[in-house]
Design a protein around this nucleic acid. Structure first.
Lengths: 118, 118
DNA sequence: CTAATATTTAATCAATACGTTAAATATATC
DNA sequence: GATATATTTAACGTATTGATTAAATATTAG
């Protein structure tokens, strides 16, 4: 059904490759916030922050939300899907070591047997 | 004890940001292989492959191994640590949605109560 | 050990990415 | 609704990245 699609994973990784954007994601973990709130956390200019947000948005890592119970304010919120895709890929990669472990065990047994022969 | 260290995560992400390198990791999941084997899978030149391997190696995603039961051959093998670090970070990020879910539930209950008032 | 092959390093180039300031546009406040 | 503030877009410069070809250095085979 929902094949992660290689391309999607590449996009998430590209978006997270920049340390500033990675830190922005960390900040957004505390909850949705406005562009200005994020900007306050960095020493770069406003436009630079805006551009990073654009990249995160274009790659679907965040979305703009015009929520706000009482007031109408634009906030950015983390989106789950891209992170889930990346997690799924990482689990596939992690499978390498389980199989390696199996191979190692088989190999070790083989060696043991050989030694017995000796 | 083993604090993932932000910097390490940034390095892993930077290394995986390039699609070719991401694909190389995918290939290495099938098992350790030589530079040439990897090169055969791509249309780019040998030196380009070599540079990508260098980046992966410098960021500790792979390591050179001079193993080989019968023959002496240089192969590249995936290293677990960087991927584990990234996984750990992703889990922290994922915690956002669990807490969001909690918040949402609380919010929904609040709304329900309000409606009752109405 | 020498020749053949494979891999890495060097030098160079084009494309991309990130930052800045200035201008435009959208949003918020009185 | 007019003014002040916040945010994005435009234009531009610099630095980094990824690719290529040529040269150097392993590594494998005879």
């Amino acid at each position: 059904m929902s094949e992660p699609a290689q391309e999607q994973i590449d996009r998430v990784l590209a978006a997270l490759a920049d340390p500033t954007r990675r830190r922005m994601v960390d900040l957004l973990r505390e909850g949705p916030m406005r562009a200005g709130d994020l900007a306050a956390a960095f020493e770069i200019s406003g436009p630079a922050v805006s551009r990073h947000l654009r990249v995160l948005r274009e790659n679907a890592l965040i979305e703009e939300e015009e929520a706000g119970d009482d007031r109408r304010l634009r906030v950015y919120r983390l989106r789950a899907a891209p992170f889930a895709d990346l997690q799924a890929w990482l689990e596939e990669v992690a499978a390498f070591w389980t199989s390696q472990l199996t191979a190692f065990k088989a190999h070790a047994e083989g060696k043991t047997r050989k030694r017995k022969k000796k």
